[in-house]
Each structure stands twice: as C-alpha cells, then as structure tokens.
Design a protein around this nucleic acid. Structure first.
Lengths: 205, 205, 205, 205
DNA sequence: GATGAATGAGGATTCATTCAT
DNA sequence: GATGAATGAATCCTCATTCAT
C-alpha cells in the first residue's frame, strides 16, 4: 500500500561504534552534496568519496541510492513533526492569534535552518516511493495542526490544516526561490498573517 | 546575469512550413512525455522518436535537450502571464472581493487544465538556468497582480503580490499532491478566501 | 508462458549495411569469447571491445547482455533443426539401420564443427528464460526424429526420440570433456550403435 | 598436471569438534543454496550467513569460494564411486542382463535423491580446475564399470564404460530438464535398455 | 580463534551528443 | 537538410577477499 520496498530501508543497523560512524558519515556526505548540488548530484560514488568511505561500504549500509535519501527524508519529517508537536503542546492555552504564529514558525523552522537541504529533501520525498514512517510523521504533524485548530473552534479543521501547511510551504519556497537573502522575521510575520487571515475571513454561506 | 546560454535557445527560427511543423512536433512530443512520465522520461531519443523525427533533426532545431524544455517553460509562462493580464484588465472596475477570486482563478487555470504537465514544467524551470524571457513573463504576471492590488489601495503591494502567488502555488500543489481527484471549484474558493484573508487581515503596527 | 521478455529480443533489426555489419560483429565477438572462455567471459564491455564497437553501439542492437546470447542460441537451434530435418527427408526411404546413423551424425554435426562454442551455447540456453523461437526449433528437430522413428514402426516414438537425443548429447559431451582430441568418426559409429541398440533391444513385457 | 592449486583445498583440517561443526555447517549451507539457487547464488557472504558463521571464519576454513565448491564436488564423486563399487561387487555373479540395470541404477541414484544439487555440482565441477581427488574417484567409478563389463566379456570395455556413463548422464539430465516430474522407475528401465542395447548390438566388422 | 567492517575492481546499462553518409 | 549509426562518460551495484579489533 505504501510502495516502499526493501530498497528504501537501511540494510543493516549499525551497532558498533565504527559502523555507526560510517553510517552517519554517509548520511552527512549525502546531505552536504544534496545541499550544494541538488538531487542529481547525489551519486553513490560521490557520496562514498565525500564520506571518505569505499563504495562497497556504502552498500553495506544502504541497499540502494534511494535508501540514503529515504533515511534523510525520514529524519527531516521526524524533526518537523517533533517540533510542531512540541509547539502545539506548549501553546495549548494560548488564543488562536498567538498559537498560530508559533505553529507557523515551527513549520518553517527547518527551512530557515537549512533552506537548500530542506527543499532538496522535499523534492526527494516526492520522487521516492511512499514510505510508511514518513507518512506517519506527516500525519502526526498534521494531527497536531488539526488539534490546534479544533481546540479553537475553527470550522473544517482538517481542510484548514492542509491549506495552512500548503500555503506556508508555498510562501517559504517562494521567498527562498527569489534572489537575495530572506528576511525570516518578516517572512514569519507574513505567513502568520496569511494564516490568521485565512482562518478568520468569513465563510460565504 | 541571467545564466541562460545558447544551450537554452532554439537553434534556428523555423520559418518554413515544414520546419515549423517539425519544430512543433518535437515540442508536442516532449510535452506529452513530460506529462506522462515526468522530467526523467524526456530523453532526446525518445522525444525524437515520438515526434517521428530523427535524432539528428532534433538537434538541428534544438542545440541541447535543455533547449526543448526551456521552450516549453517559456510558453507556459507566456500563457500564464497572458491570462493573468487579460483578467486583470477585464476586472479593472471590480472591487477587491470580486477581482481577487478572478485573479486567483486565472493563476491556477493552467494547473487545472494540465496538472501533470504544469507541475513537471515548473520542476524543469527550477532546474534550468534562469532565462531572460521566462523572467520577463514572470515579471509581467507579477506586475499585473501588483497593479490589481495597488489600484485597490493594498499596502505593500509588491510583497503582497509575491505572497499571493506563492500561497496559491502552494495550495494547488498541495491539493494535487494529495491522493484522489481534486475538486477545483472548492479549491478555487479556498484559495480566494486565503487571498482575501491575507489582504484584509489587519497589519500590526 | 515462455518467460522470454523484451530483454532477450534484439532491439532493432539492422537494415543498413553498416548496421548489419556491426550487429554481426557483436555476435561474432560474443561467439569467439564464449568459445574461448565460456559464459562468464562474455561481458558486454569485452564483447564490444572485441567487436571493435563502442559499448553504446552494442546496446543499440541488444537491450541486454542476455539478448546477445539468446540470438546465438537461436541460431544454433535453427542450424541444428535445419540439418536434422534435411537429413530426415533425404533418408526417407532408407531402412532404420541406415537412417539412424545419418540422423545421429546430423545431430552431432555442430558439436563436431564447434565443440566448445556449442557446449557453451547449450549452457547459455539452460540459463536463459525459455524462448519461443528456440522452443519451436527444438520441437521441429524432435518432430523430425519422431517422424523418422514412426515411419519405421518404432514403439513409443516420442519417448524414443527424446532418449536418443539425450543419449547422443551425453555421449558427445562425454567425449569432448575427456582429455585429448576426439575421434569423431569413431564417436559417430558408437553413437549410431547405441541408438540402434536402444531401438532394437527387446522391450520387457 | 591437474591444475588444482591451494585455492581448491580446505585450508586446515578441522580436527576439534567445534571446528568440525563449523566446517560442516559451511558446506551444508553452500549445498542448500546451491540446490535452491544454483551456482550463482553461492556467494561467500551468503554461505557464511546461512551457516551462522562470520565471513572471517569461513575464510579460516576455506581459502576461497572455489574451495567450498570443490569439497562438495569431491564428496559427490566419492558417494557416486562408492555406490557404484558396492553394486559392482554385490552383482559380481549376476549375468549382464541383471548386472547392468543395477549398475545404471547406482549411477543415477544421486540424481534421483538430489536432482538439483547434483546437477549444480556437476556444473561446478566443469568450471573448477581439475582436482586430483575428484579424478581419482571418477577413475574408481569407471574402473568398477570396466571390471563389470570385462568380467562379462564385453568388447572394448573401457570405451564401453565411458559410453555407458555418458549416455546415462545424458538421459537423466534430459529427463530432468524436461518440464514436469520425472518418473524414475521408467527412466531407470529405459536407461537399462539403452545400455543393454548398446552392449549387445552387433559390432560392424 | 572469531568477528564483521571495509575494500575496490569489475560488470550492466543509459543517454546526450556528434558526424559520416 | 535529413538520417541514424556510433560514441563513451557516467551511473548503479555486487561480491570475493582482507585485516584491524
């Protein structure tokens, strides 16, 4: 149902210290290349070389190129959902006008920290077969958003959650695609405004 | 400054009828493959084959694979800007609440008509070196949006135009990425609401 | 049902003279390597090199390594069945004692002419997915054998045909596996004797 | 002269009980993989894993992949020759018509018991450098056959022994290569008939 | 003795592009 | 002008073997 096969799972869990270091070195190398050159730059040989590891070692840990990307994507989603959930809990008693800006800020935090890598990973995610764990994390993030809205009496909270997430993503990507440095403080403010505007604008009936 | 070299320009302007037909056949073939299989499916040999043309001929008209994609991207941008400009003129005397929905509808019209091709072309656009003509069309579309907002007294109209475009794109892409058929009528309504919410929500001061 | 997919079919029929020459050069090179080093020696790069052709050209004509082998196997089977059929027709009016030696000689002719290549091709045949044309040729050869036996009143002709073919193959392979040069005249005589012995030995009842 | 080097010999004689168990586990694992997937499936890492042994340990007992296969081949030949010799002795006082069916049955017994493994091991044998012990066992089996024939006044007994062995092998392999389950009782009968026919058919002079 | 991490040569295949005909 | 045969760098991946721990 999810389409992910063994090709996307790490081949063996690295238990020993040396193993662990190699495993992480490979992921780190892949992330750095991804960041600098995009998906197409991530070839198995280059990753291995950059990680200071032989190509054979790379394939000891990852059964296919895709598995490296899948692991990075999974970690990104985990980070994102964790942050969103943390904020949603911390903001439990705040009114919509204060909770939403915090949620939106959490949603784009990773884009702020690593714009290029995050964008490349989202692209990778779209290309990879659907992965159960990734879907789970996306769901958890979405559920946090839905809960946040539901608790504040927002109508059609699921739809709204999806729309807010999509708007946000669009706006960060738009800002990052433009030439020049991004002013994230302003961007956060605009995204918050867009979100609140969307949520408070009267429905037609 | 724009990064586009001769690789992205058609090699020769096809003036004669037969040339013209070949040229268009190549573009059409590329578009159909792009739609069906995404960017990776568009190989020069397959495009030539599908167009019923020899690979040698393809290279008579396009100096490189990228040039084919660049031309398709340019046309997409042209279409989009044309539509937006037309609507902005037609809506000149409408109030914001009516003009914005029309503008937003124009902005996503191409996504509605050819979702897969449009998405693939945007992806191609991101991968290609920046092209002067493409940038021009984007600017024209943006200017139409800006004018529409300025005429209605919107504050920070440039920023707002960019944000509206980005939000819109995010929301269409989000809807299309989700499983299942997209209900475009509802989507248009939500996008319009998001836009109006964004524009009317009070600025902090 | 036969298991052969596009991987085993030549990719394009070579029509032009240059094309044809390349195609044949590839097959010839593969045959020579097969003969000298066995199946494992037949790598696509080595075949291409030996054929004096680039690896890309090889893949223009054959979609996979297996397709080269499949084509060689097919030709071998064609040759074998053609020879057997020809002999069976030429021997139509001969008695069993004369027809059988001729049939057996036909059956091993290719082993005589190219012992190592023929053995290697049979091994390749066993490894490849079943191919419709190959099966057809095998059937044609078998049918010729069956007809030959039926016409002479042999009991259980199908079974006998299969057994004769199997015995023959065993004996040639055995002789060729032994050290030293094979005396094919003697071998033919022994095979003929084995066949006639098998056919004339009284059935238990 | 025989071509076998240290690569085909077990590295150390496993004397202690634990060593012995490991050694046997490796061979057993290799045999099971060989049976299930053929020669190509037998990779050193998979054998080690299946044997529940580290790859390093495997190389303690066998200097190379080939050595594992060589040992299995040797055992097969040992089994075969032992069986044939036993039968030839048990049948010492039987006439040709009774002795030969017993000998032939002995010759194919291992194919009956483990068709796939036996076939794979013969293939392995053909690929491996000639090994002295294997040759010895083959000679012993052949000598038993020769003795059996000589004792019964068969002309050219060496040649006949080789031919019988070769025919037999051809017929079993033929039967096993065909689709469907093999009826070994019938097969044995046919092989016996072929052998007796071969032996009793009058020589030309 | 045992372990298993690491190695890297080598194999199959693709695809943008050139150029002789 | 058109054709399509030819090119070869680049990519993914396997597997026998070694050696530090």
């Amino acid at each position: 149902m999810t389409g992910a096969s063994d090709r996307e799972k790490p081949r063996k869990a690295p238990v020993q210290a040396r193993s662990r270091a190699t495993y992480e070195a490979i992921l780190e190398a892949a992330a750095r290349i991804l960041e600098a050159e995009g998906l197409a730059g991530v070839t198995t040989n280059r990753v291995a070389e950059r990680a200071g590891v032989s190509i054979g070692s790379l394939y000891q840990y990852f059964p296919a190129r895709e598995a490296i990307l899948a692991e990075l994507v999974k970690r990104m989603r985990l980070e994102m959902s964790a942050r969103l959930i943390a904020v949603s809990e911390g903001a439990r008693h705040l009114p919509l006008e204060e909770a939403i800006p915090q949620m939106m800020a959490a949603a784009i935090a990773r884009y702020e920290a690593e714009p290029r890598l995050t964008a490349a990973l989202e692209e990778a995610e779209a290309r990879l077969p659907r992965d159960a764990e990734v879907l789970t994390e996306r769901r958890r993030a979405r559920d946090a958003m839905i809960a946040c809205l539901t608790a504040r009496g927002v109508a059609a909270p699921k739809e709204a959650a999806d729309d807010l997430i999509a708007m946000t993503r669009g706006m960060v990507r738009g800002a990052q695609a433009a030439r020049g440095a991004v002013d994230y403080a302003r961007l956060r403010a605009r995204i918050a405004r867009a979100a609140l505007g969307y949520l408070t604008y009267p429905h037609p009936d």
